[in-house]
């Protein structure tokens, strides 16, 4: 109960600050819009070509906006040395990790939902019938990305070259998740049943469990540097 309250207060704090400053959300939404324009110009109106590259483009957008958002996870903690306050708070530090992860997840899902809706409008794609399957794939993929991204953001928060180091660390680890999400998204958008991509979904779920477990088990050491 106490653990859950501690995790919740971190989510509440991050979302309250984001709700007031809107720094990350505005930047991510603008960036997503920019990406869509670029993709639209690059691909043109060729629907066949579009269908083959759409899953990759979609996840490229998710990953790039995710990198921007996740990289800022601990930026606010540098303000007034709040990072030290997190370290000095007695108790299990994994509550802080789970709170940060949940906050990131909510923000990323919000941006991804917006991006999906814009994709549908910009590229004239009917994603309605694929929506439930797509929600599952996007959800599983985003948990994996957010779980390891939150951890690496903490690892690089006190490093001088963090903006460079963060994607360099994160992207190689994300390869299995990316592979699974793009393949599963492609199948879902083509109208295939979820059973046809069950192996990819299992891989994503396993990656999520492993990444969250690694985060929970190691965050204490990472925070204490």
């Amino acid at each position: 109960m106490r653990f859950a309250r501690r995790a919740w207060i971190v989510v509440w704090k991050d979302l309250t600050i984001e709700g007031r400053s809107k720094e990350t959300l505005n930047a991510l939404l603008f960036f997503s819009l920019l990406l869509l324009f670029l993709f639209q110009f690059a691909l043109g109106p060729d629907r066949e070509r579009l269908a083959s590259v759409l899953p990759g483009l979609l996840w490229l957008g998710f990953i790039l906006s995710g990198l921007l958002g996740l990289g800022r996870t601990f930026v606010g903690e540098r303000e007034n040395d709040c990072w030290d306050g997190l370290r000095l708070a007695p108790g299990d530090k994994s509550a802080i990790y789970l709170g940060k992860l949940a906050g990131n997840l909510l923000l990323m899902l919000l941006v991804e939902t917006t991006l999906l809706a814009l994709f549908a409008v910009f590229f004239n794609v009917d994603i309605g019938p694929a929506a439930p399957g797509l929600a599952l794939v996007v959800g599983l993929g985003t948990i994996g990305l957010a779980a390891i991204g939150t951890l690496f953001a903490a690892m690089t928060a006190q490093v001088r070259a963090r903006e460079l180091l963060f994607p360099v660390l994160l992207l190689p680890v994300q390869v299995p998740v990316l592979l699974g999400t793009v393949k599963a998204t492609e199948a879902v958008l083509l109208g295939e049943p979820l059973g046809a991509v069950a192996h990819w979904l299992r891989l994503l779920a396993a990656a999520d469990v492993v990444y969250v477990a690694i985060g929970v088990l190691t965050f204490d050491f990472i925070l204490d540097g």
């Binding site: 207060i9 303000e79 040395d81 007695p90």
Partner: peptide, 19 residues
């Protein structure tokens, strides 16, 4: 060790719950 975008009361609530 306080967050500029929270109120004074919210800051105290955050740190006390976290502790």
């Amino acid at each position: 060790l306080v967050y500029d975008d929270l109120t004074a009361l919210e800051n105290l609530r955050f740190w006390s719950v976290l502790s």
